[in-house]
Design a protein around this nucleic acid. Structure first.
Length: 423
DNA sequence: TCTGGGGTCCTAGGACCC
DNA sequence: TCTGGGGTCCTAGGACCC
């Protein structure tokens, strides 16, 4: 049976999560900051109308925020991650084919059936997520993912749509594409938009009607796929089976610049512990580790460097990866710089298969030790047991998060408290 | 003074193979 | 002076996404 795509997108997701526990903030301007309270990464509609752009450095907008009494939150990923899972669960209850595309978006595959009211179904989906989780969503429907994205944009912006817009067999499609800037098309970033503008392609409709050979040559098959998708020809399939990740990254900007090797060691040990936990949670092992340290691009004296080590065999062992990370750090570290950020990347990730070393007997496996560690931390909370050098609280390098809301849904100590009027 | 974090895919070019 | 053809694998860098 023929299928169409529905894109479900949570409206202003991080802001909606915060408002769920602070309903007094509905209708008021709210922003959420990046991990180190540096940039604005989510805005309520009211904050958008004030002209606060996505990704803006906070310090540049402090005056505006103060003048309009904008409520500011540090990011609270424990909360957003948990609410995201709840939204996805509701979607899965209604529809088997769900691809979780990001923390706040999912593609669904819906059957085409002339007797079936797709719009009504999408509206039900929307009501159910609102009722069960409390997060507002928008739904865009189309024959291709790229067009579903555009449909979703319409659903979100035009209040007459009531959160749902369907582009399948819609005679207004070209009109809508004409009103969509080419840079707003999914897959067309800043660079490509500039290139297309020079060539006289300004709207999604221009791109839809552009010369495929030229697109293929200057924007590779990725661009050619986008053009086909705009022409209603699906090229990007629904991916609803979990896949083995290609890489796992853990990196953070520091709360304040650090210069000493000791602080960098602590930070990297902590990041490596986090990343290896993720490896084990997904049942995979990493073959290489890359460490990077940087002063950041804004420093007076810039320094960025990275080093990669291929491990003798893929592993998910925290001590093995910590020791490799520290080996990298020793050769990267230069005492004369002020470091603002460091991180590690695990790659060469494999599942269930391992190339053993012909000349080395299999090393003692600490798999059961790691499993025990994960069990204890799973039961008693993160960092109950950790490597001695991995300090995680109140260090010079730990991130600033001065406006963080409680982990309302994931920590017993931080559950919201309800008081009755009578008491 | 203050500027996020975590991913994916594609291509060109180098190194290497027979 | 003249020096093949066909292929694979890896990596760095670019571009994109949320």
């Amino acid at each position: 049976m023929k299928k169409v795509f529905a894109l479900v997108d949570c409206n202003n997701f991080f802001v909606s999560c915060e408002r769920l526990f602070r309903p007094g903030l509905n209708g008021r301007p709210v922003v959420v900051l990046s991990n180190n309270d540096g940039c604005i990464i989510a805005r309520s509609n009211e904050a958008k109308s004030l002209g606060i752009p996505m990704g803006a450095p906070l310090f540049q907008y402090r005056h505006l925020i103060a003048r309009h009494n904008v409520h500011v939150f540090s990011s609270n990923y424990a909360l957003y991650g948990d609410l995201s899972c709840r939204v996805m669960d509701v979607l899965r209850q209604m529809e088997a084919n769900v691809e979780v595309y990001s923390i706040d978006e999912a593609f669904l595959s819906l059957p085409v059936n002339t007797l079936w009211d797709r719009g009504g179904y999408a509206a039900t989906l929307r009501d159910r997520v609102q009722k069960h989780v409390g997060i507002p969503i928008s739904v865009g429907i189309a024959n291709t993912k790229t067009l579903a994205k555009i449909a979703n944009g319409v659903a979100k912006k035009d209040p007459r749509c009531r959160g749902v817009f369907d582009l399948v067999g819609n005679s207004q499609t070209d009109n809508i594409l004409r009103q969509t800037a080419v840079g707003d098309v999914w897959g067309i970033g800043r660079r490509s938009a500039e290139k297309l503008n020079i060539r006289g392609i300004f709207t999604a409709l221009d791109l839809k009607r552009s010369d495929e050979t030229w697109i293929r040559k200057s924007m590779t098959v990725v661009g050619a796929r986008t053009v086909m998708e705009l022409n209603d020809i699906p090229c990007i399939a629904l991916q609803n089976a979990p896949v083995c990740p290609q890489s796992i990254v853990t990196s953070r900007s520091f709360g304040q610049a650090v210069t000493d090797l000791g602080s960098l060691r602590e930070a990297l040990i902590s990041y490596t512990s986090t990343a290896t936990e993720k490896l084990r949670k997904q049942g995979v092992e990493a073959g290489t580790i890359t460490v990077f340290i940087t002063t950041g691009p804004f420093a007076q004296h810039c320094y960025s460097n990275n080093q990669t080590i291929a491990l003798p065999r893929p592993t998910a062992s925290t001590p093995a990866l910590i020791s490799a990370a520290l080996q990298c750090l020793r050769s990267l570290y230069r005492p004369e710089y002020k470091y603002r950020k460091a991180g590690i990347m695990l790659s060469g990730i494999v599942k269930g298969y391992k190339q053993l070393d012909l000349f080395q007997p299999a090393a003692k496996d600490d798999r059961s030790l790691m499993a025990g560690l994960d069990r204890i931390n799973g039961k008693w909370g993160r960092h109950t047991i950790q490597y001695g050098m991995a300090k995680t609280t109140h260090t010079a390098w730990s991130a600033q998060q001065s406006q963080k809301s409680p982990a309302y849904t994931t920590r017993w100590q931080e559950l919201p408290v309800v008081r009755t009027a009578a008491s």
